[in-house]
Amino acid sequence: MGVIEASDRAWKVVQMSENVSAAEWLRGIIDEYGVSGTRSCTAIAEALGIDCRHEKTCRDCIIKMMTAIADRIDAERALPDGMEWPRFEDGGLVRIGDELEFEGKTMLVCDATFYADDWALWCDREDMSGRLYGKYGERVKRPAPKVLDADGVPIKVGDTVYFVDGDARPLTVERIDANGGEPAVDLVYAGQILRWHSVNPEKLTHERPDSWRLWGEDLDMAVKVGEVDKVEMMRRAKALAKAGEGL
């Protein structure tokens, strides 16, 4: 069997085969083009299912060839009827390596499994792993954007924070609104006696603001237990004096 004859047979196999991957299909066409040494662009177009004789320009032919390749790739990646790749609430596809919200925590998508009626995403993080299940058409939550205090520290529900203006009352973070517009934090003080709604997180800090009153209370307590840290107390006193804090 001559090279030309063998090449023709392989060429037809490449054209007719629907069981190979898109990459194998394309590489087969490329290999045959190189083996024959005489194949024209018309022959390549035919291998992609296009008849150049019916095209007005080479540009039209090339567009159809690229479309044929894209269609073959799409067909290879398509899921069976009734199945759908999981999507986020905004419609974006959930891809391997994406972060999502899983049991209130941010997890990394490592794998996806498809069943007859639902899907499962294997999720992982440093301290835990698990599978997130959902029905086809059910949406996945993205992780809530990080809300940072005045010092750049993330704020979470349940945290104890303070206003940066020097108010030393400990406040508990009750709710965080991080979606849409400017992020905001709801706070509660002393068992829901006082509440603050939609507070700008940049006005909060996890560090308790110091004051002369607190300085005095801490000094009294330190004297009582016999553990006065003179260096620390002096540092705080200098900082308060520099900041012009009132008594």
Rank of each mutant, 00 (worst) to 15 (best):
G91C: 03
G92P: 00
V94W: 11
I96R: 11
I96D: 00
D98G: 06
E99C: 12
K105A: 14
L108Q: 10
D111Y: 15
A112H: 09
T113D: 10
F114L: 13
Y115M: 01
W119N: 09
L121M: 13
C123P: 08
D124E: 15
E126H: 12
E126D: 14
D127M: 03
D127A: 10
D127R: 08
G130K: 12
R131P: 00
Y133K: 05
G137R: 06
G137Y: 01
E138C: 13
E138P: 06
R139P: 04
V140K: 05
R142C: 01
P145K: 11
K146V: 15
L148R: 12
A150H: 12
P154V: 06
I155T: 01
V157Y: 04
D159V: 06
D159Q: 02
T160F: 00
V164T: 15
V164P: 02
D165G: 01
G166A: 07
D167Y: 03
V173S: 02
R175Q: 09
I176M: 04
A178T: 06
G180K: 04
D186A: 05
D186H: 08
L187W: 05
Y189T: 04
G191V: 01
I193K: 13
H197G: 00
T205E: 02
R208K: 13
P209K: 05
P209M: 02
S211Y: 04
L214Q: 13
L214S: 13
D218L: 07
D218S: 07
A222G: 05
K230S: 12
